[in-house]
Simulated scan of single mutants.
Amino acid sequence: MEEAIKIAILGDICPTKDYRKFFDSQDPEQVLGGAVNRLKEADLTIANLEAPATESNEPIMKTGPNLKALPRDLETLQKGGIDVFSMANNHILDYGTQGVIDTLETCEKLGIRTVGSGRDSKAAKEPLFIPVKDKMIGILSFAEAEFNLATSNQAGANRFDYFDSIKDIDSAKKNCDFLIVLYHGGSEHYPYPSPLLQKKCRNMAEFGADLVICQHSHCIGTYEEVNGSTILYGQGNAVFGWEDGDQQWNEGLLVEITIIGAVKPQIRFILLNANADGVGLANENKAGERLRRMNEMSKALQHSEQVNALWEDFSHSHVSLYYSMLFGKGRIFNKINRLLKNRLIDFLYSDRERMLAMNMLRCDAHNEVIQTILKQNFRKKQDNVEL
């Protein structure tokens, strides 16, 4: 009988302020809790590093928070069993190119492999191939475009570009036995795929991905089997602090893959729970109930009309938030507009103005011009960093 290969994959990891004390202990069991034993038992462990590991105190100008880890944190995570960091995400460039380079250099020094980021876009898109026993495991990591991307002369994350990335998946599959694709994107706090995200991921499966995991949503999502491949739309947090009363934020999945010979790999979801004392494995009853709910929710993915209807409902519930952001309003305006159910936006912007905004966003030509103009503006203000 052929020897089993075990692979473990963790979701988003970031040393938040409330968990800083656990990282400062430099004790992996303080950081990863009961998951440590499972990680160390695996032949290969992968995690998404959701922040640059750097001593820099110079964050870039961006929307949203600037996240940071320290170089010594990576050694703690390595001691906990992590072999590979995926670094294609929306925060890896939060402390500029120096932050990315510092992270890559620390990983190289520690012998931790990386994927999805590099000193330029060519390096960032390189797949990672790791021989494990008698199999070759391939890993590709992609991120949606935010303030994070590598360019021809700047370090950063590997962008998912449908025209190139699907070809990258097809090519990588030809050089490995099992291909893992980590996709950092989708809508935060939404457990289902949008119609577009589902189409993207199904195409990844069609062109060679054996397992597609969507990260970034900060919640456990739904999953489906497509063309013999597994797609998980939301892995949830691994180590990202604890939010009192927010169970969605406080849970995540450890994904375990068992490969034996030519038999279809077994994929298992293991529930992680965070609390004020750290991260741990959920008890059997709680885990069983949560996974049953996940299975029930996942049935909707087989019906496109349900996927569309769920997406319409989610989008409608965020109309005041997104209109405020679209028209460049601040937090105070945003809060008032949400309380007034979008009446401020309705008062300030006519239907015609919103039609113009819609057309500039949906038309590739207009969209490209606007993005170029805005990039030029911010590049002048931020030491030529490409945004």
Rank of each mutant, 00 (worst) to 15 (best):
4 A>Q: 11
119 R>V: 15
163 F>L: 15
235 Q>I: 14
146 E>N: 08
322 Y>V: 11
58 E>L: 07
167 K>Y: 13
359 N>F: 15
266 Q>G: 14
171 S>D: 13
170 D>H: 13
270 I>E: 02
67 L>W: 13
303 H>G: 14
127 P>E: 01
113 R>A: 09
65 P>G: 08
342 N>D: 14
43 D>F: 05
265 P>K: 01
305 E>Y: 13
70 L>H: 11
80 G>N: 10
319 V>S: 07
250 N>E: 08
148 N>D: 03
191 P>T: 05
292 R>L: 10
10 L>I: 09
161 D>P: 01
246 D>R: 03
319 V>M: 09
230 T>N: 09
306 Q>Y: 10
6 K>H: 04
83 D>N: 02
276 A>L: 09
113 R>S: 10
181 V>D: 02
265 P>Y: 10
114 T>D: 00
289 E>V: 15
101 I>L: 06
31 V>H: 07
115 V>K: 00
371 Q>D: 09
331 R>V: 08
268 R>T: 15
260 I>M: 15
357 A>I: 06
75 E>I: 02
120 D>H: 02
280 G>T: 12
63 T>V: 05
135 K>T: 02
68 K>M: 05
81 G>R: 13
384 N>D: 09
68 K>V: 07
254 L>K: 00
203 N>M: 15
146 E>Q: 06
362 R>V: 08
298 S>A: 09
231 I>D: 00
87 M>S: 01
267 I>A: 03
379 R>N: 14
107 C>A: 06
38 R>T: 07
283 N>V: 04
244 D>Q: 07
77 L>T: 04
100 V>G: 05
229 S>V: 11
374 L>R: 13
220 I>T: 05
8 A>W: 05
194 S>A: 00
229 S>D: 05
131 P>L: 01
75 E>N: 12
320 S>M: 00
312 E>P: 11
89 N>K: 03
115 V>S: 02
28 P>W: 03
102 D>I: 04
202 R>S: 04
11 G>F: 10
23 F>D: 02
264 K>D: 09
138 G>P: 05
212 V>F: 02
166 I>V: 15
151 T>W: 05
221 G>A: 06
194 S>K: 03
112 I>T: 05
284 E>P: 10
337 N>D: 07
271 L>N: 12
329 K>E: 00
209 A>I: 04
300 A>C: 02
273 N>I: 14
81 G>V: 01
264 K>Y: 07
104 L>R: 04
355 M>S: 11
378 F>W: 07
57 N>P: 08
204 M>E: 09
105 E>D: 08
202 R>W: 08
44 L>V: 09
249 W>I: 12
274 A>S: 14
215 Q>N: 11
195 P>V: 12
224 E>S: 03
203 N>A: 14
199 K>G: 06
352 R>H: 11
225 E>F: 10
265 P>C: 08
362 R>T: 03
